[in-house]
Design a protein around this nucleic acid. Structure first.
Lengths: 108, 108
DNA sequence: TCAATATACAACCAATCGGTTGTATGTCGT
DNA sequence: ACGACATACAACCGATTGGTTGTATATTGA
């Protein structure tokens, strides 16, 4: 159902808006971890952590690969960079405003 | 009630997770706009837009200043940059992983 | 002074969120 | 073959979200 880049932006920012998910992302950017290894770090049920991992995966911020009975999660740095570039676009818009102010000042 | 940097991160990413709020942020980064001028752009009630503006303001992404009976909203590019730097921290963690992999390969 | 304008905010609603427990499905080791 | 482990997912719950309408409070211009 998700199709547009706005949908992807919604999903990515939403995934990043929870501190447990940001912590999971940090860990799996540093290296592969199974879902249960991740779950061991938090004071909540395995199922809750598994859902957080699923949210990150749906947003494209992590990928999983099977290894025996485990699913090894790994952070996708390219997805992180795509979020960075959305913010860069915002900064670019702001820069245009400053340029316009400068131009106005120069007119005098 | 918000105190920690994790609370601020929660608020900022949450504020950015809605496309209407991202659009508002783009407009007010480009230049000041009153709340009702912003509301004119969207197919929803004034109150809904006013709440979106309040969410962005609580997250620190925009500031408001009174001008007569209007409140002029303006995007805060420094706040946007602080989000960028959170993502940069994630990229940095990932770089450490790559360095470790390189070191392992070099051992052979 | 007074009507119109601009904003804020409360109360409400359906939908989603972050958590829970319970169950089903694979996969491993013996 | 079977018990233990790893994962997925459904059902449920209270809290929050994104929207609505209605009301209150300033501020302006005539």
């Amino acid at each position: 159902m998700d199709e547009t880049s706005e949908d992807r932006a919604d999903a990515m920012f939403h995934a990043l808006s929870d501190r447990t998910r940001r912590d999971i992302l940090r860990r799996v950017l540093a290296g592969e971890h199974s879902v249960s290894a991740l779950a061991g770090n938090y004071d909540m049920s395995f199922a809750a952590v598994q859902k957080h991992v699923a949210v990150l995966e749906r947003a494209g911020l992590i990928t999983k690969r099977r290894h025996g009975r485990q699913q090894l999660a790994s952070g996708d740095v390219e997805a992180v960079r795509s979020v960075t570039s959305m913010l860069a676009e915002l900064e670019h818009i702001w820069r245009g405003r400053i340029d316009r102010i400068d131009a106005l000042l120069e007119e005098t």
